[in-house]
């Protein structure tokens, strides 16, 4: 009885989550430039459009560049901070932990508007690099959380053991801490990368008038009517996210990364 109920419930949730994506996937293979479902005819040309149309291609390049760089910067901010908080007793340093988590916890409009007023006041409004910094700050929470989890999973006696065997602080970091924390760095980077790729409001408020990322491009296209490329880009996004998170799950412990420490015992 329970198992039937569970299957039904899982199916309904899965349907709810998948339905819009199924429709979008169907729409993306329409032969003509109309919004129709079930699709009329079949064509993969709208996927080619992402790469052949200069506007979409530039938006894709801008999004990927932004995501690659901002995720890197986010990890560069989070790693020393998480390491310091793990290594040292400095209660007041927790304020930076709080600051690192705040941008992601508050409504995104707040961070976006803060960035907008800041860059405008500082005179850098519209510069592409401001979007990199803004995204790095906005998403620093993700590597910070995965890295903090990762550090707590390192047995401190490993560090002590390395010290008794002659390793100084930097040798310990290089030979023990870094290899053990590496999977968490990778997953923190992956989380930040995927979310940056999808982010709209912060990018829009910082560089929206000078540069188009894919979400901005989709939104602009949405306001001026419909083109099936929107649908094919959407499918591309979902697939990218699924592949990246799938890889994280394949090479890391996803339940643990999401805070389920007890999963070790199963």
């Amino acid at each position: 009885m329970t198992s039937v109920f569970r299957r039904l419930y899982f199916f309904l949730i899965a349907l709810f989550l998948a339905l819009p994506l199924i429709v979008v996937a169907g729409v993306s293979v329409n032969q003509k430039q109309t919004l129709a479902f079930p699709p009329e005819g079949f064509s993969a040309s709208w996927y080619g459009e992402i790469f052949s149309n200069a506007e979409w291609r530039n938006a894709l390049a801008a999004s990927v560049t932004l995501a690659l760089l901002s995720a890197m910067l986010a990890v560069a901010i989070a790693l020393p901070l998480a390491w310091f908080l793990w290594r040292r007793v400095a209660p007041w340093a927790n304020i930076f932990q709080l600051l690192g988590v705040a941008p992601f916890t508050l409504p995104p409009v707040i961070t976006a508007l803060g960035m907008l007023t800041f860059w405008a006041t500082a005179g850098f409004y519209g510069q592409p690099w401001t979007a990199v910094v803004s995204h790095a700050i906005f998403f620093v929470t993700l590597p910070l959380v995965t890295l903090s989890l990762g550090f707590t999973s390192i047995d401190r006696s490993l560090v002590e053991a390395a010290a008794t065997m002659g390793a100084d602080e930097s040798a310990i970091f290089r030979t023990v801490v870094l290899p053990l924390i590496l999977p968490y760095i990778v997953s923190g980077y992956a989380f930040a990368f995927v979310l940056s790729l999808n982010e709209y409001i912060v990018a829009y408020m910082t560089v929206g008038f000078t540069m188009e990322t894919l979400p901005i491009k989709i939104f602009n296209a949405l306001r001026y009517g419909y083109t099936p490329t929107m649908a094919s880009v959407t499918v591309l996004f979902v697939a990218t996210a699924a592949v990246i998170f799938g890889l994280v799950a394949r090479f890391g412990d996803l339940p643990k990364l999401l805070g389920a420490m007890a999963s070790d015992e199963k």
Binding site: A14, L17, P20, L21, V23, V24, V194, L195, L197, N198, E199, Y200, I201, P215, I216, I218, F219, L222, M230, A231, T234, F237, V238, A241, A242, F245, G246, A249, L254, P255, L258
Partner: peptide, 18 residues
Amino acid sequence: LVALLSVLSLSEVIIGFA
């Protein structure tokens, strides 16, 4: 979890469009 994370990471623009 992979499916949930993929949906969670979707842009509001994309969810709105879908």
